[in-house]
Design a protein around this nucleic acid. Structure first.
Length: 547
RNA sequence: GCGCCACUAGCUCAGUUGGAUAGAGCAUCAGCCUUCUAAGCUGAGGGUCACAGGUUCGAGUCCUGUGUGGCGCGCCA
Protein backbone atom coordinates (compact mmCIF):
# COMPACT_ATOMS: atom_id res chain seq x y z
CA UNK A 1 0.00 0.00 0.00
CA UNK A 2 1.31 3.39 -0.94
CA UNK A 3 2.22 5.54 2.08
CA UNK A 4 -0.42 8.13 2.95
CA UNK A 5 1.87 11.12 2.61
CA UNK A 6 2.45 10.29 -1.05
CA UNK A 7 -1.24 9.82 -1.69
CA UNK A 8 -2.31 13.10 -0.11
CA UNK A 9 0.43 15.06 -1.82
CA UNK A 10 -0.61 13.71 -5.21
CA UNK A 11 -4.29 14.30 -4.53
CA UNK A 12 -3.54 17.93 -3.78
CA UNK A 13 -1.44 18.29 -6.91
CA UNK A 14 -4.18 16.82 -9.06
CA UNK A 15 -6.72 19.20 -7.63
CA UNK A 16 -4.43 22.10 -8.39
CA UNK A 17 -4.27 21.21 -12.07
CA UNK A 18 -8.04 21.33 -12.17
CA UNK A 19 -9.19 17.76 -11.62
CA UNK A 20 -11.74 17.30 -8.89
CA UNK A 21 -12.03 13.57 -9.12
CA UNK A 22 -9.16 11.76 -7.47
CA UNK A 23 -10.75 8.31 -7.69
CA UNK A 24 -8.65 7.32 -10.66
CA UNK A 25 -5.43 7.97 -8.82
CA UNK A 26 -3.79 4.59 -8.24
CA UNK A 27 -0.33 3.54 -7.31
CA UNK A 28 1.21 0.22 -8.08
CA UNK A 29 4.57 -1.37 -7.58
CA UNK A 30 6.29 -1.53 -10.97
CA UNK A 31 7.37 -4.99 -12.03
CA UNK A 32 10.78 -3.66 -12.87
CA UNK A 33 12.31 -2.34 -9.63
CA UNK A 34 14.59 0.01 -11.59
CA UNK A 35 11.58 2.25 -12.08
CA UNK A 36 11.19 2.74 -8.36
CA UNK A 37 8.87 1.62 -5.60
CA UNK A 38 5.60 3.14 -6.73
CA UNK A 39 4.23 4.22 -10.06
CA UNK A 40 1.09 5.95 -11.16
CA UNK A 41 -0.49 6.19 -14.58
CA UNK A 42 -2.76 9.09 -13.63
CA UNK A 43 -1.30 11.42 -16.25
CA UNK A 44 -2.13 8.99 -19.05
CA UNK A 45 -5.63 8.40 -17.79
CA UNK A 46 -6.57 12.08 -17.66
CA UNK A 47 -4.70 13.03 -20.83
CA UNK A 48 -7.75 12.58 -23.02
CA UNK A 49 -10.02 14.75 -20.89
CA UNK A 50 -7.45 17.50 -20.56
CA UNK A 51 -6.48 17.18 -24.21
CA UNK A 52 -2.85 17.38 -23.33
CA UNK A 53 0.21 15.22 -23.73
CA UNK A 54 0.49 12.79 -20.77
CA UNK A 55 4.12 13.62 -20.21
CA UNK A 56 3.29 17.31 -19.96
CA UNK A 57 0.64 16.58 -17.35
CA UNK A 58 3.02 14.37 -15.45
CA UNK A 59 5.58 17.15 -15.48
CA UNK A 60 3.07 19.58 -14.04
CA UNK A 61 2.10 17.14 -11.30
CA UNK A 62 5.64 16.48 -10.15
CA UNK A 63 6.35 20.19 -10.05
CA UNK A 64 3.47 20.55 -7.61
CA UNK A 65 4.41 17.81 -5.19
CA UNK A 66 6.90 18.36 -2.45
CA UNK A 67 8.59 15.63 -0.46
CA UNK A 68 11.34 15.25 2.09
CA UNK A 69 14.43 14.39 0.04
CA UNK A 70 15.60 12.02 2.74
CA UNK A 71 12.48 9.93 2.29
CA UNK A 72 11.63 10.27 -1.38
CA UNK A 73 14.82 9.73 -3.31
CA UNK A 74 13.55 10.65 -6.73
CA UNK A 75 10.49 11.20 -8.87
CA UNK A 76 10.78 10.65 -12.60
CA UNK A 77 8.62 10.58 -15.67
CA UNK A 78 9.22 7.53 -17.81
CA UNK A 79 7.82 5.90 -20.90
CA UNK A 80 4.49 7.19 -22.18
CA UNK A 81 3.83 9.18 -19.00
CA UNK A 82 4.32 7.05 -15.90
CA UNK A 83 5.32 8.88 -12.77
CA UNK A 84 7.80 6.76 -10.85
CA UNK A 85 8.69 7.27 -7.23
CA UNK A 86 11.71 5.83 -5.54
CA UNK A 87 11.79 5.81 -1.77
CA UNK A 88 14.99 5.91 0.18
CA UNK A 89 16.57 3.15 2.21
CA UNK A 90 15.99 5.30 5.25
CA UNK A 91 12.25 5.20 4.63
CA UNK A 92 12.28 1.40 4.58
CA UNK A 93 14.57 1.15 7.57
CA UNK A 94 12.03 3.20 9.51
CA UNK A 95 9.21 1.03 8.24
CA UNK A 96 10.96 -1.96 9.80
CA UNK A 97 10.78 -0.24 13.16
CA UNK A 98 7.02 0.20 12.77
CA UNK A 99 6.51 -3.44 11.89
CA UNK A 100 8.63 -4.50 14.81
CA UNK A 101 6.65 -2.31 17.17
CA UNK A 102 3.40 -3.87 15.97
CA UNK A 103 4.38 -6.96 17.95
CA UNK A 104 3.69 -10.67 17.74
CA UNK A 105 0.49 -10.36 15.80
CA UNK A 106 1.88 -8.32 12.95
CA UNK A 107 -0.54 -8.69 10.05
CA UNK A 108 -3.74 -8.42 12.06
CA UNK A 109 -6.18 -5.70 11.23
CA UNK A 110 -9.50 -4.40 12.38
CA UNK A 111 -11.32 -4.13 9.07
CA UNK A 112 -13.89 -6.64 10.20
CA UNK A 113 -14.28 -5.36 13.71
CA UNK A 114 -17.81 -5.83 14.97
CA UNK A 115 -18.75 -7.97 11.97
CA UNK A 116 -19.71 -11.61 12.04
CA UNK A 117 -18.74 -14.09 9.35
CA UNK A 118 -19.96 -17.62 8.83
CA UNK A 119 -17.77 -20.00 6.87
CA UNK A 120 -19.38 -23.25 5.85
CA UNK A 121 -17.04 -25.97 4.69
CA UNK A 122 -16.60 -29.72 4.37
CA UNK A 123 -20.34 -30.36 4.87
CA UNK A 124 -20.03 -33.99 3.81
CA UNK A 125 -22.96 -36.20 4.74
CA UNK A 126 -22.18 -39.03 7.15
CA UNK A 127 -22.39 -41.72 4.51
CA UNK A 128 -18.72 -42.38 4.06
CA UNK A 129 -15.15 -41.31 4.54
CA UNK A 130 -13.68 -38.02 3.40
CA UNK A 131 -11.88 -38.15 0.10
CA UNK A 132 -9.39 -35.80 -1.49
CA UNK A 133 -11.99 -33.37 -2.78
CA UNK A 134 -13.25 -32.90 0.76
CA UNK A 135 -9.66 -32.38 1.81
CA UNK A 136 -9.22 -29.46 -0.53
CA UNK A 137 -12.55 -28.07 0.59
CA UNK A 138 -11.60 -28.42 4.26
CA UNK A 139 -8.21 -26.76 3.87
CA UNK A 140 -9.56 -23.88 1.82
CA UNK A 141 -12.45 -23.31 4.21
CA UNK A 142 -10.34 -23.42 7.32
CA UNK A 143 -7.76 -21.02 5.93
CA UNK A 144 -10.40 -18.60 4.75
CA UNK A 145 -11.92 -18.72 8.24
CA UNK A 146 -8.47 -17.98 9.66
CA UNK A 147 -7.95 -15.11 7.23
CA UNK A 148 -11.22 -13.44 8.18
CA UNK A 149 -10.46 -13.93 11.79
CA UNK A 150 -7.18 -12.05 11.20
CA UNK A 151 -9.16 -9.26 9.61
CA UNK A 152 -10.99 -8.90 12.89
CA UNK A 153 -14.20 -10.72 12.01
CA UNK A 154 -15.96 -12.85 14.57
CA UNK A 155 -15.90 -16.13 12.63
CA UNK A 156 -18.16 -19.15 12.98
CA UNK A 157 -16.90 -22.34 11.34
CA UNK A 158 -19.85 -24.38 10.25
CA UNK A 159 -20.55 -27.86 8.96
CA UNK A 160 -23.93 -28.55 7.35
CA UNK A 161 -25.10 -32.12 7.07
CA UNK A 162 -28.08 -34.25 6.31
CA UNK A 163 -28.73 -37.43 8.25
CA UNK A 164 -32.12 -38.13 6.78
CA UNK A 165 -33.44 -39.00 3.37
CA UNK A 166 -32.59 -41.33 0.57
CA UNK A 167 -28.83 -41.35 0.95
CA UNK A 168 -29.00 -42.41 4.55
CA UNK A 169 -31.50 -45.13 3.75
CA UNK A 170 -29.10 -46.30 1.12
CA UNK A 171 -26.30 -46.33 3.67
CA UNK A 172 -28.43 -48.37 6.05
CA UNK A 173 -29.32 -50.88 3.33
CA UNK A 174 -25.70 -51.19 2.24
CA UNK A 175 -24.55 -51.85 5.77
CA UNK A 176 -27.38 -54.27 6.34
CA UNK A 177 -26.53 -56.25 3.21
CA UNK A 178 -22.88 -56.53 4.25
CA UNK A 179 -24.03 -57.54 7.69
CA UNK A 180 -26.02 -60.41 6.24
CA UNK A 181 -23.10 -61.38 4.03
CA UNK A 182 -20.90 -61.61 7.10
CA UNK A 183 -23.43 -63.89 8.70
CA UNK A 184 -22.92 -66.27 5.82
CA UNK A 185 -25.80 -65.27 3.55
CA UNK A 186 -23.67 -64.38 0.56
CA UNK A 187 -26.65 -64.36 -1.77
CA UNK A 188 -28.36 -61.56 0.18
CA UNK A 189 -28.91 -58.78 -2.41
CA UNK A 190 -26.73 -55.67 -2.24
CA UNK A 191 -28.57 -52.46 -3.16
CA UNK A 192 -27.88 -51.39 -6.71
CA UNK A 193 -26.82 -47.82 -5.89
CA UNK A 194 -25.31 -48.94 -2.61
CA UNK A 195 -22.07 -47.78 -1.10
CA UNK A 196 -19.40 -50.16 -2.28
CA UNK A 197 -16.52 -48.98 -0.10
CA UNK A 198 -14.61 -51.32 2.13
CA UNK A 199 -15.60 -49.25 5.13
CA UNK A 200 -19.17 -50.58 4.85
CA UNK A 201 -17.78 -54.03 5.59
CA UNK A 202 -15.93 -52.64 8.60
CA UNK A 203 -19.15 -51.13 9.91
CA UNK A 204 -21.02 -54.38 9.30
CA UNK A 205 -18.31 -56.28 11.09
CA UNK A 206 -18.66 -54.07 14.14
CA UNK A 207 -22.41 -54.67 14.06
CA UNK A 208 -21.82 -58.39 14.10
CA UNK A 209 -19.51 -57.95 17.11
CA UNK A 210 -22.09 -55.88 18.90
CA UNK A 211 -25.40 -57.48 17.96
CA UNK A 212 -24.50 -60.97 16.77
CA UNK A 213 -27.31 -62.23 14.55
CA UNK A 214 -30.06 -60.45 16.43
CA UNK A 215 -30.60 -57.97 13.59
CA UNK A 216 -31.48 -60.69 11.12
CA UNK A 217 -35.17 -60.03 10.67
CA UNK A 218 -35.20 -57.27 8.08
CA UNK A 219 -37.38 -54.87 10.01
CA UNK A 220 -37.50 -51.09 9.93
CA UNK A 221 -36.20 -51.09 13.48
CA UNK A 222 -33.15 -53.09 12.52
CA UNK A 223 -32.46 -50.93 9.46
CA UNK A 224 -32.77 -47.92 11.72
CA UNK A 225 -30.13 -49.41 14.00
CA UNK A 226 -27.85 -49.84 10.99
CA UNK A 227 -28.47 -46.26 9.96
CA UNK A 228 -27.73 -44.77 13.37
CA UNK A 229 -24.71 -46.96 13.83
CA UNK A 230 -23.41 -46.14 10.37
CA UNK A 231 -24.02 -42.44 10.79
CA UNK A 232 -22.16 -42.33 14.05
CA UNK A 233 -19.34 -44.44 12.69
CA UNK A 234 -18.90 -42.20 9.67
CA UNK A 235 -19.13 -39.02 11.68
CA UNK A 236 -16.52 -40.19 14.12
CA UNK A 237 -14.19 -40.99 11.26
CA UNK A 238 -14.84 -37.65 9.61
CA UNK A 239 -14.18 -35.72 12.80
CA UNK A 240 -11.06 -37.75 13.41
CA UNK A 241 -9.78 -37.02 9.92
CA UNK A 242 -10.49 -33.31 10.32
CA UNK A 243 -8.81 -33.22 13.68
CA UNK A 244 -5.77 -34.85 12.09
CA UNK A 245 -5.67 -31.74 9.92
CA UNK A 246 -6.25 -29.61 12.99
CA UNK A 247 -9.65 -28.53 11.72
CA UNK A 248 -12.48 -28.05 14.19
CA UNK A 249 -15.93 -26.67 13.47
CA UNK A 250 -17.93 -24.55 15.90
CA UNK A 251 -21.35 -25.57 14.63
CA UNK A 252 -22.64 -28.80 13.10
CA UNK A 253 -25.92 -27.78 11.53
CA UNK A 254 -28.37 -30.56 10.89
CA UNK A 255 -30.53 -30.13 7.82
CA UNK A 256 -33.18 -32.25 9.49
CA UNK A 257 -33.73 -29.59 12.14
CA UNK A 258 -35.13 -27.29 9.45
CA UNK A 259 -38.03 -29.70 9.03
CA UNK A 260 -38.73 -30.13 12.71
CA UNK A 261 -38.66 -26.49 13.66
CA UNK A 262 -40.93 -25.46 10.81
CA UNK A 263 -38.36 -23.37 8.97
CA UNK A 264 -39.05 -25.17 5.70
CA UNK A 265 -42.76 -24.41 5.99
CA UNK A 266 -42.05 -20.79 6.78
CA UNK A 267 -40.11 -20.42 3.56
CA UNK A 268 -42.87 -22.05 1.53
CA UNK A 269 -45.37 -19.74 3.17
CA UNK A 270 -43.40 -16.66 2.24
CA UNK A 271 -42.97 -17.88 -1.31
CA UNK A 272 -46.73 -18.45 -1.53
CA UNK A 273 -47.45 -14.96 -0.25
CA UNK A 274 -45.13 -13.54 -2.85
CA UNK A 275 -46.73 -15.75 -5.48
CA UNK A 276 -43.41 -17.25 -6.40
CA UNK A 277 -44.59 -20.88 -6.32
CA UNK A 278 -47.15 -22.89 -8.22
CA UNK A 279 -48.42 -26.45 -8.41
CA UNK A 280 -47.78 -28.57 -11.47
CA UNK A 281 -47.84 -32.35 -11.96
CA UNK A 282 -48.47 -32.73 -8.26
CA UNK A 283 -45.24 -30.95 -7.34
CA UNK A 284 -44.54 -27.45 -6.05
CA UNK A 285 -42.43 -25.34 -8.37
CA UNK A 286 -40.39 -22.24 -7.61
CA UNK A 287 -40.81 -19.57 -10.30
CA UNK A 288 -37.14 -18.90 -10.82
CA UNK A 289 -37.98 -17.37 -14.19
CA UNK A 290 -39.72 -14.56 -12.31
CA UNK A 291 -36.45 -14.04 -10.48
CA UNK A 292 -34.43 -13.72 -13.64
CA UNK A 293 -33.27 -17.31 -14.10
CA UNK A 294 -33.85 -19.54 -17.10
CA UNK A 295 -35.90 -22.37 -15.66
CA UNK A 296 -38.36 -23.00 -12.87
CA UNK A 297 -37.45 -25.79 -10.47
CA UNK A 298 -39.31 -28.20 -8.25
CA UNK A 299 -38.91 -27.48 -4.56
CA UNK A 300 -41.43 -30.01 -3.23
CA UNK A 301 -41.72 -33.32 -5.03
CA UNK A 302 -45.06 -34.94 -5.76
CA UNK A 303 -44.22 -37.33 -2.93
CA UNK A 304 -44.35 -34.37 -0.57
CA UNK A 305 -40.60 -34.35 0.11
CA UNK A 306 -38.68 -31.17 -0.58
CA UNK A 307 -35.81 -31.23 -3.06
CA UNK A 308 -32.39 -30.08 -1.83
CA UNK A 309 -33.07 -26.53 -3.02
CA UNK A 310 -35.72 -25.79 -0.45
CA UNK A 311 -33.74 -26.71 2.69
CA UNK A 312 -30.72 -24.97 1.16
CA UNK A 313 -32.68 -21.77 0.84
CA UNK A 314 -34.16 -22.17 4.31
CA UNK A 315 -30.69 -22.81 5.70
CA UNK A 316 -29.27 -19.68 4.14
CA UNK A 317 -32.20 -17.69 5.41
CA UNK A 318 -31.33 -18.98 8.87
CA UNK A 319 -27.78 -17.78 8.47
CA UNK A 320 -29.10 -14.30 7.75
CA UNK A 321 -31.49 -14.47 10.68
CA UNK A 322 -28.64 -15.57 12.93
CA UNK A 323 -27.12 -12.19 12.18
CA UNK A 324 -24.12 -12.89 9.99
CA UNK A 325 -22.76 -10.00 7.96
CA UNK A 326 -20.81 -12.26 5.68
CA UNK A 327 -21.78 -15.77 4.64
CA UNK A 328 -19.10 -17.79 2.92
CA UNK A 329 -19.83 -21.19 1.37
CA UNK A 330 -17.07 -23.45 0.16
CA UNK A 331 -18.28 -25.86 -2.51
CA UNK A 332 -16.73 -28.28 -4.96
CA UNK A 333 -17.20 -27.69 -8.67
CA UNK A 334 -20.02 -30.24 -8.81
CA UNK A 335 -22.25 -27.96 -6.76
CA UNK A 336 -22.02 -25.02 -9.07
CA UNK A 337 -25.44 -25.50 -10.63
CA UNK A 338 -27.28 -25.05 -7.34
CA UNK A 339 -25.75 -21.71 -6.47
CA UNK A 340 -27.84 -19.37 -8.66
CA UNK A 341 -31.07 -21.03 -7.49
CA UNK A 342 -30.26 -20.62 -3.82
CA UNK A 343 -29.12 -17.04 -4.28
CA UNK A 344 -32.27 -16.21 -6.21
CA UNK A 345 -34.33 -17.75 -3.43
CA UNK A 346 -32.52 -15.68 -0.84
CA UNK A 347 -33.08 -12.52 -2.86
CA UNK A 348 -36.75 -13.34 -3.14
CA UNK A 349 -36.95 -13.64 0.62
CA UNK A 350 -35.70 -10.09 0.88
CA UNK A 351 -32.11 -10.67 1.88
CA UNK A 352 -29.03 -9.15 0.33
CA UNK A 353 -27.47 -12.02 -1.57
CA UNK A 354 -24.28 -10.02 -2.03
CA UNK A 355 -23.45 -10.97 1.51
CA UNK A 356 -23.28 -14.58 0.41
CA UNK A 357 -19.94 -15.46 -1.13
CA UNK A 358 -19.74 -18.81 -2.79
CA UNK A 359 -16.26 -20.15 -3.28
CA UNK A 360 -16.17 -22.91 -5.87
CA UNK A 361 -13.02 -24.95 -6.01
CA UNK A 362 -12.09 -27.25 -8.87
CA UNK A 363 -11.29 -30.90 -8.51
CA UNK A 364 -8.20 -32.69 -7.33
CA UNK A 365 -6.31 -35.33 -9.24
CA UNK A 366 -3.74 -37.44 -7.55
CA UNK A 367 -0.59 -38.06 -9.56
CA UNK A 368 1.91 -40.76 -8.91
CA UNK A 369 4.96 -41.39 -11.08
CA UNK A 370 3.47 -39.12 -13.71
CA UNK A 371 0.18 -40.97 -14.03
CA UNK A 372 -3.16 -40.24 -12.51
CA UNK A 373 -4.29 -42.40 -9.60
CA UNK A 374 -7.87 -43.22 -10.49
CA UNK A 375 -10.48 -42.62 -7.89
CA UNK A 376 -13.74 -44.42 -8.17
CA UNK A 377 -16.53 -43.87 -5.72
CA UNK A 378 -18.46 -46.85 -6.92
CA UNK A 379 -15.74 -49.41 -6.52
CA UNK A 380 -14.81 -47.71 -3.27
CA UNK A 381 -11.14 -47.95 -4.10
CA UNK A 382 -10.64 -44.23 -3.73
CA UNK A 383 -7.69 -42.83 -1.86
CA UNK A 384 -9.14 -41.49 1.35
CA UNK A 385 -8.05 -38.23 2.90
CA UNK A 386 -6.94 -40.12 5.97
CA UNK A 387 -4.65 -42.37 3.98
CA UNK A 388 -3.11 -39.34 2.35
CA UNK A 389 -2.51 -37.61 5.70
CA UNK A 390 -1.04 -40.81 7.06
CA UNK A 391 1.31 -41.05 4.13
CA UNK A 392 2.62 -37.51 3.69
CA UNK A 393 1.69 -35.72 6.90
CA UNK A 394 -0.85 -33.04 7.73
CA UNK A 395 1.41 -30.07 6.96
CA UNK A 396 2.10 -31.25 3.44
CA UNK A 397 -1.57 -32.00 2.83
CA UNK A 398 -2.66 -28.59 4.00
CA UNK A 399 -0.05 -26.69 2.08
CA UNK A 400 -0.45 -28.66 -1.14
CA UNK A 401 -4.20 -28.12 -1.15
CA UNK A 402 -3.66 -24.39 -0.73
CA UNK A 403 -0.75 -23.64 -2.99
CA UNK A 404 -2.87 -23.54 -6.12
CA UNK A 405 -5.53 -21.04 -6.99
CA UNK A 406 -8.99 -22.21 -5.90
CA UNK A 407 -10.41 -21.89 -9.41
CA UNK A 408 -7.90 -24.17 -11.09
CA UNK A 409 -7.71 -27.87 -11.19
CA UNK A 410 -5.27 -29.16 -8.60
CA UNK A 411 -2.73 -31.78 -9.38
CA UNK A 412 -1.51 -33.41 -6.20
CA UNK A 413 1.91 -34.85 -6.87
CA UNK A 414 2.35 -37.76 -4.48
CA UNK A 415 6.02 -38.18 -5.26
CA UNK A 416 6.75 -34.55 -4.46
CA UNK A 417 4.56 -34.69 -1.36
CA UNK A 418 6.43 -37.71 -0.05
CA UNK A 419 9.75 -36.00 -0.62
CA UNK A 420 11.10 -34.64 2.62
CA UNK A 421 13.65 -32.45 0.94
CA UNK A 422 14.34 -29.06 -0.53
CA UNK A 423 12.09 -29.82 -3.47
CA UNK A 424 9.09 -29.71 -1.21
CA UNK A 425 7.91 -26.12 -0.67
CA UNK A 426 6.49 -26.89 2.77
CA UNK A 427 9.91 -27.73 4.07
CA UNK A 428 11.41 -24.70 2.42
CA UNK A 429 9.11 -22.55 4.54
CA UNK A 430 9.47 -24.54 7.70
CA UNK A 431 13.21 -24.57 7.25
CA UNK A 432 13.31 -20.80 7.07
CA UNK A 433 11.37 -20.63 10.32
CA UNK A 434 13.53 -23.22 12.07
CA UNK A 435 16.64 -21.42 10.89
CA UNK A 436 15.44 -18.20 12.45
CA UNK A 437 14.63 -19.95 15.70
CA UNK A 438 18.09 -21.39 15.70
CA UNK A 439 19.61 -17.92 15.38
CA UNK A 440 17.80 -16.79 18.50
CA UNK A 441 18.77 -19.98 20.30
CA UNK A 442 22.39 -19.50 19.45
CA UNK A 443 22.26 -15.87 20.55
CA UNK A 444 20.78 -16.94 23.85
CA UNK A 445 23.44 -19.58 24.38
CA UNK A 446 26.16 -17.08 23.71
CA UNK A 447 24.49 -14.46 25.88
CA UNK A 448 24.10 -12.07 22.99
CA UNK A 449 21.23 -9.69 23.55
CA UNK A 450 19.91 -6.93 21.43
CA UNK A 451 18.71 -3.50 22.24
CA UNK A 452 14.95 -3.08 21.79
CA UNK A 453 15.38 0.64 21.49
CA UNK A 454 18.18 0.52 18.95
CA UNK A 455 17.54 2.44 15.80
CA UNK A 456 17.05 0.52 12.56
CA UNK A 457 18.13 3.43 10.34
CA UNK A 458 21.51 1.84 9.76
CA UNK A 459 20.16 -0.86 7.47
CA UNK A 460 20.86 -0.21 3.80
CA UNK A 461 22.19 -3.33 2.11
CA UNK A 462 20.08 -4.54 -0.82
CA UNK A 463 19.31 -7.85 0.92
CA UNK A 464 18.10 -6.01 4.01
CA UNK A 465 16.01 -3.47 2.18
CA UNK A 466 14.54 -6.12 -0.09
CA UNK A 467 13.47 -8.18 2.92
CA UNK A 468 11.85 -5.14 4.54
CA UNK A 469 9.97 -4.36 1.35
CA UNK A 470 8.49 -7.83 1.30
CA UNK A 471 7.69 -7.76 5.01
CA UNK A 472 5.76 -4.53 4.55
CA UNK A 473 3.36 -6.28 2.19
CA UNK A 474 2.11 -8.81 4.71
CA UNK A 475 -1.04 -7.04 6.01
CA UNK A 476 -2.06 -6.22 2.46
CA UNK A 477 -1.49 -9.83 1.38
CA UNK A 478 -3.76 -11.08 4.14
CA UNK A 479 -6.43 -8.66 3.07
CA UNK A 480 -6.33 -9.53 -0.64
CA UNK A 481 -6.03 -13.20 0.10
CA UNK A 482 -9.20 -12.96 2.22
CA UNK A 483 -11.14 -10.70 -0.10
CA UNK A 484 -10.39 -12.87 -3.10
CA UNK A 485 -10.89 -16.06 -1.12
CA UNK A 486 -7.51 -17.24 -2.34
CA UNK A 487 -5.22 -18.65 0.34
CA UNK A 488 -2.81 -19.38 -2.50
CA UNK A 489 -1.89 -15.69 -2.57
CA UNK A 490 -0.65 -15.99 0.99
CA UNK A 491 1.14 -19.27 0.28
CA UNK A 492 3.00 -17.73 -2.65
CA UNK A 493 3.85 -14.68 -0.62
CA UNK A 494 5.36 -16.73 2.18
CA UNK A 495 7.63 -18.45 -0.30
CA UNK A 496 8.78 -15.03 -1.53
CA UNK A 497 9.41 -13.95 2.02
CA UNK A 498 11.36 -17.10 2.84
CA UNK A 499 13.46 -16.61 -0.30
CA UNK A 500 14.23 -13.03 0.70
CA UNK A 501 15.12 -14.16 4.18
CA UNK A 502 17.37 -17.00 3.05
CA UNK A 503 19.13 -14.61 0.74
CA UNK A 504 19.62 -12.05 3.51
CA UNK A 505 20.81 -14.77 5.86
CA UNK A 506 23.30 -16.01 3.34
CA UNK A 507 24.91 -12.64 2.78
CA UNK A 508 24.52 -10.86 6.11
CA UNK A 509 25.69 -12.13 9.45
CA UNK A 510 23.58 -11.34 12.42
CA UNK A 511 25.46 -12.75 15.38
CA UNK A 512 28.89 -11.23 15.26
CA UNK A 513 27.84 -7.90 13.79
CA UNK A 514 28.52 -4.71 15.69
CA UNK A 515 25.87 -2.42 17.08
CA UNK A 516 23.69 -0.86 15.82
CA UNK A 517 23.66 -3.34 12.90
CA UNK A 518 23.33 -6.26 15.30
CA UNK A 519 20.13 -5.02 16.90
CA UNK A 520 18.67 -3.80 13.64
CA UNK A 521 19.24 -7.20 12.01
CA UNK A 522 17.76 -8.92 15.02
CA UNK A 523 14.61 -6.87 14.55
CA UNK A 524 14.56 -7.68 10.86
CA UNK A 525 14.87 -11.37 11.65
CA UNK A 526 12.23 -11.16 14.36
CA UNK A 527 9.70 -9.64 11.97
CA UNK A 528 10.43 -12.36 9.41
CA UNK A 529 9.89 -14.95 12.11
CA UNK A 530 6.54 -13.47 13.11
CA UNK A 531 5.32 -13.32 9.53
CA UNK A 532 6.27 -16.93 8.88
CA UNK A 533 4.64 -18.01 12.10
CA UNK A 534 1.43 -16.07 11.49
CA UNK A 535 1.24 -16.86 7.80
CA UNK A 536 1.81 -20.58 8.21
CA UNK A 537 -0.65 -20.69 11.08
CA UNK A 538 -3.31 -19.12 8.87
CA UNK A 539 -2.59 -21.81 6.30
CA UNK A 540 -2.79 -24.42 9.02
CA UNK A 541 0.82 -25.49 8.69
CA UNK A 542 2.91 -26.13 11.80
CA UNK A 543 6.06 -24.19 12.55
CA UNK A 544 8.61 -26.53 14.14
CA UNK A 545 11.49 -24.74 15.83
CA UNK A 546 14.00 -27.35 14.82
CA UNK A 547 14.38 -29.45 11.72
C1' G B 1 -27.16 -28.64 -27.29
C1' C B 2 -26.59 -25.10 -22.80
C1' G B 3 -23.80 -23.23 -18.38
C1' C B 4 -19.31 -22.82 -15.20
C1' C B 5 -13.79 -23.44 -14.74
C1' A B 6 -9.28 -23.82 -17.12
C1' C B 7 -5.45 -23.40 -21.44
C1' U B 8 1.30 -19.12 -19.93
C1' A B 9 8.84 -22.44 -20.27
C1' G B 10 10.02 -29.81 -20.84
C1' C B 11 6.53 -30.50 -16.02
C1' U B 12 3.48 -27.98 -12.02
C1' C B 13 1.86 -23.17 -11.59
C1' A B 14 2.07 -17.28 -10.44
C1' G B 15 0.97 -12.92 -13.04
C1' U B 16 -2.56 -7.64 -8.42
C1' U B 17 -8.96 -3.27 -10.76
C1' G B 18 -5.41 -3.32 -18.73
C1' G B 19 0.77 -0.87 -17.95
C1' A B 20 6.90 -0.41 -19.11
C1' U B 21 11.83 -5.92 -20.82
C1' A B 22 6.02 -12.24 -19.22
C1' G B 23 7.86 -14.64 -13.55
C1' A B 24 8.67 -18.80 -9.74
C1' G B 25 9.47 -23.90 -8.31
C1' C B 26 10.87 -28.62 -10.31
C1' A B 27 13.90 -30.75 -14.19
C1' U B 28 18.89 -29.57 -17.06
C1' C B 29 23.78 -27.18 -16.76
C1' A B 30 27.73 -24.26 -13.92
C1' G B 31 29.49 -22.31 -9.19
C1' C B 32 29.37 -21.44 -3.31
C1' C B 33 30.06 -24.71 3.37
C1' U B 34 36.84 -24.15 9.08
C1' U B 35 31.93 -18.59 10.80
C1' C B 36 24.09 -17.87 13.12
C1' U B 37 20.83 -25.00 10.27
C1' A B 38 23.78 -26.33 2.57
C1' A B 39 16.23 -28.81 3.79
C1' G B 40 20.37 -22.93 1.97
C1' C B 41 22.57 -19.26 -1.67
C1' U B 42 24.36 -17.38 -6.75
C1' G B 43 24.21 -17.76 -12.04
C1' A B 44 22.87 -19.89 -17.22
C1' G B 45 19.71 -21.88 -20.90
C1' G B 46 14.48 -22.54 -21.82
C1' G B 47 8.16 -18.64 -24.38
C1' U B 48 4.02 -17.53 -31.20
C1' C B 49 0.83 -16.44 -23.09
C1' A B 50 -4.28 -22.58 -27.23
C1' C B 51 -5.91 -20.14 -32.14
C1' A B 52 -8.33 -16.00 -34.96
C1' G B 53 -10.43 -11.31 -34.90
C1' G B 54 -11.86 -6.77 -32.04
C1' U B 55 -11.65 -2.57 -28.26
C1' U B 56 -7.02 1.70 -27.25
C1' C B 57 -1.81 5.41 -26.18
C1' G B 58 -0.93 0.09 -24.37
C1' A B 59 -3.90 -6.73 -24.05
C1' G B 60 -1.36 -12.82 -20.87
C1' U B 61 -5.27 -9.61 -18.56
C1' C B 62 -11.32 -6.81 -21.45
C1' C B 63 -15.13 -8.35 -25.77
C1' U B 64 -16.59 -11.95 -29.81
C1' G B 65 -15.77 -16.52 -32.23
C1' U B 66 -13.08 -21.38 -32.65
C1' G B 67 -10.38 -25.55 -30.58
C1' U B 68 -8.81 -28.79 -26.36
C1' G B 69 -9.53 -30.63 -21.26
C1' G B 70 -12.43 -30.79 -16.51
C1' C B 71 -17.23 -30.24 -13.95
C1' G B 72 -22.34 -29.63 -14.15
C1' C B 73 -27.27 -29.34 -16.71
C1' G B 74 -33.23 -34.55 -12.25
C1' C B 75 -39.53 -34.47 -8.75
C1' C B 76 -30.61 -37.00 -6.66
C1' A B 77 -27.63 -33.90 -2.85
Amino acid sequence: MVPDFILTEFENAIKKIGLKDCSKLRFEAPKNPDFGDYATNIAMIVAKDLKKNPREIAQKIIELVDFDKQIVERITIDGPGFINIKLSNLFFAQELEKMYQFGEEYGKSFLGKGLRANVEYVSANPTGLLHLGHGRNACIGDSIANLYSWLGYDVTREYYFNNAGKQMTNLARSIYARYRHLLGEEEYPFPEDGYFGEYIKEIANELVQKYGNSLVPETNENLEICKKFGEEWCFNKIRKTLSNLNIFHDVFYNEDSLYHNGKIDEVIKIFREKELVYEKDGALWLSLTKLGLKEDRVIVKSTGEPTYRLPDIAYHREKFLRGFDLIIDIFGADHIATVPDVLAGIRALGFDDKKVKVVIHQFVTLMENGVQVKMSKRSGRSYTLDELIEEVGADVVRFFFLMRSVSTHLEFDLNLAREHSEKNPVFYLQYAYARICSIFDTAKERNITFDEKANTDCLNLPQEINLIKIQRLFPEIIQTSAEKFEPQILADYLIDLATAFHSFYHDCRIIGSDEPILSARFKLTKVAQRILKNGLTILGVNTPERM
